[in-house]
Write a protein that binds this DNA or RNA. Structure first.
Lengths: 212, 212
DNA sequence: GACGGCATACCAACCGGTCGGTATGTAATT
DNA sequence: AATTACATACCGACCGGTTGGTATGCCGTC
């Protein structure tokens, strides 16, 4: 009931747990989930195996926690902190979003590809928990994006039969597919080409006269 | 120098090698490459480990052989034997191709997803040989498809800056991305939605007035 | 002195790959 | 026609190392 009140905003000790998750995101993006061993992770994170299993009940539990962390990471990077958020016109903002994603596709492949998209490919049939966590992450992004798509639709109209959420998932699909091509060619250029097709599609959908 | 002339058309013994590759394609599509062990494969193919390593120098060599087999498998299934090959007008044929791919996306996820697309995600950074084999398979499909895209462009024109090959790769990207969404949701419906967006994009590209 | 946050030591199962060996076929030599 | 020589297809026990996971103990903070 006295002193000792500063020095603590959160229960946060960023230490072991966060470092393990960070290492997992990095390694899984490079070599997949199954090929990433717990020992590798501990080495990369600079912790021991005891610490690992203190924080995570299993390798599978780490994957789930990683997916949740990825959701927050992506939300911050792509929405909260993104420069295109300030654009006024909803359609312009949507296009700016695509251009932002386009600009992200650069440098080494493992730096811009999707952690959960990679992981779900290996785990969808063997681990319901991981599949659900990855689905939740992808869906969270799509639902957030759908808000902006809906604003653009409200403002500029849309062809019958197309929903904001459906279009948001399609944007996700093109990005995920572009990542696969980039991995196959070990070159981001082919991925950017695909995202430019996506941008053109959106422009044509919202204004059939505009064909870049 | 008499009798014994029937009973032999080819040196073909379809046996062990083909069965192993078939098992690999099946298992990798379900659970990925790293999570598929050589022992699993032998069990599924009904051969012994000795037979496996007689036919393949390593697990990596099997992956490469599998990718090559997949290229042929896909070529036969999607081009040679496909019903849409007969359509006369190049654009109609291209759209029929997309509709054919759309119809393929049905049933359990592991039945319609792409073997090389799955594998390259895990191997691009760790195995140059596998990455190249997967790239070759994807590129072979894109180049074959680009022939038909080019015919449609010759016939109906195209916006400046879009190439047949680039568009063919984009089609590949959408399909690959659609597969990931299907895995995340364990449901083909979301993948079909994306391919319908792709179809609409093609129709708008070739005729801006047509908006389904 | 209880408890969270680690470290050390260890385990059984499984991993990709090797190895000595067998069964069968083919083709040239004798 | 029998012998030799070699190739192909396959078997299954075995190897060293790695796997995910556990059991236990130490140590600083409340």
């Amino acid at each position: 009931m006295s002193s000792r009140l500063a020095l603590r905003e959160k229960p946060a000790r960023p230490s072991a747990r966060a470092k393990i998750i960070g290492a997992a995101i990095e390694q899984v993006r490079r070599q997949g989930f199954a090929a990433t061993s717990v020992d590798d992770l501990c080495r990369a994170a600079g912790v021991t195996k005891g610490a690992f299993f203190h924080h995570f009940a299993s390798k599978e539990a780490l994957a789930v926690a990683g997916a949740e962390a990825w959701t927050e990471h992506a939300r911050a990077r792509i929405f909260t902190d993104a420069p295109w958020m300030g654009v006024a016109d909803p359609l312009d903002r949507l296009i700016a979003h695509i251009e932002f994603r386009l600009a992200m596709i650069d440098g080494p492949v493992e730096a811009f590809t999707c952690f959960v998209g990679t992981m779900v490919q290996e785990a969808y049939a063997t681990s319901p928990a991981i599949r659900q966590a990855c689905d939740a992450s992808i869906t969270a992004y799509a639902e957030r994006l759908a808000e902006d798509v809906q604003l653009a639709i409200d403002c500029h109209g849309m062809i019958h039969g197309i929903t904001a959420l459906g279009l948001a998932f399609h944007i996700q699909a093109v990005l995920q597919g572009a990542f696969i091509l980039a991995k196959a060619k070990d070159d981001p250029a082919i991925a950017r080409d695909s995202v430019r097709h996506l941008k053109r599609y959106l422009q044509m959908l919202f204004d059939p006269a505009t064909a870049t």
